[in-house]
């Protein structure tokens, strides 16, 4: 279980996260929605400590990390091993083949044996539908393929949480579908996903929970069904704008 208490972060004058408190249960997919600049990406990146909030408490299972006191490198690394990021721009390592991209973390960080890591990497590639791409370089992949490799790379670390920051925003609808199918499958297998997205149809289908953020604050935090049936005007407007309904 991952729990946040009063997370705050400012960029200069701008308050990006303004007292965020929420819980991300395991084996559940949370979709984070909100307009651009609302702080949802920053929130996601804070979970992996790519952003360091200035204040707030971060509970990971029984462990407590206090951002106000600062985190040691050891603490940061221990959190990062349990949370994996998937980026909008994939960020595959261009100088490594697909297979080496996937085993880089397990062999270098978790110190797994190379053949074990390779075997699992190959299985993960099959799982994301790219069993024949092990020896390709990232530059030889389409965006959809690259993002699926990135998902396999995240899975290879066997993290408790996979954090996806607008994973399909750079893709056209067909390539997006390839990626979303993989994510849906992972959600069905009870892999914990936290996804920042603008794709409402996907949120409607895959999310268990929805977090709606605006101006660094949580406007909605609850089950999916409740979110899509809410009477809160701001959220009703947002949903209809995103889905072209009732406009």
């Amino acid at each position: 279980m991952l729990k946040l208490e009063n997370l705050s972060k400012t960029f200069g004058e701008h308050r990006v996260l303004d007292g965020i408190s929420t819980v991300f249960p395991e084996h559940e997919t949370t979709v984070v929605l909100g307009p651009s600049g609302s702080g949802k990406s920053t929130l996601l990146r804070s979970l992996n400590l790519l952003e360091r909030p200035e204040a707030g408490r971060y509970h990971f299972d029984d462990e407590l990390f206090d951002f106000g006191k600062g985190l040691s490198n050891k603490e940061i690394l221990s959190i990062r091993k349990r949370t994996e990021m998937v980026f909008q721009e994939y960020n595959l390592f261009p100088h490594l083949t697909v297979l080496k991209n996937i085993i880089e973390g397990p062999t270098q960080v978790l110190h797994e044996a190379k053949d074990t890591a390779q075997k699992r990497a190959q299985e993960l590639l099959v799982k994301v539908g790219l069993g024949d791409k092990a020896d390709a370089y990232p530059s030889q992949l389409s965006g959809g393929q690259a993002q699926r490799v990135a998902i396999a790379r995240a899975l290879a670390m066997q993290p408790k949480y996979i954090l996806l920051d607008e994973p399909t925003s750079a893709l056209d609808p067909e390539l997006e579908l390839e990626v979303l199918k993989v994510l849906r499958q992972l959600a069905q297998e009870k892999q914990t996903l936290i996804i920042v997205t603008h794709n409402m149809a996907f949120a409607r289908e895959v999310a268990a929970r929805v977090l709606f953020i605006e101006n660094g604050q949580i406007l909605f935090d609850g089950p999916k069904a409740e979110f899509f049936n809410t009477k809160k005007q701001r959220i009703v407007d947002f949903i209809s704008a995103m889905t072209f309904e009732n406009i």
Partner: peptide, 16 residues
């Protein structure tokens, strides 16, 4: 910057 972030995300130290 994304390369650093991807490396950090899989738990690498700055040196690694």
């Amino acid at each position: 910057k994304g390369q650093w972030e991807a490396a950090y995300s899989i738990g690498m130290t700055r040196t690694l």
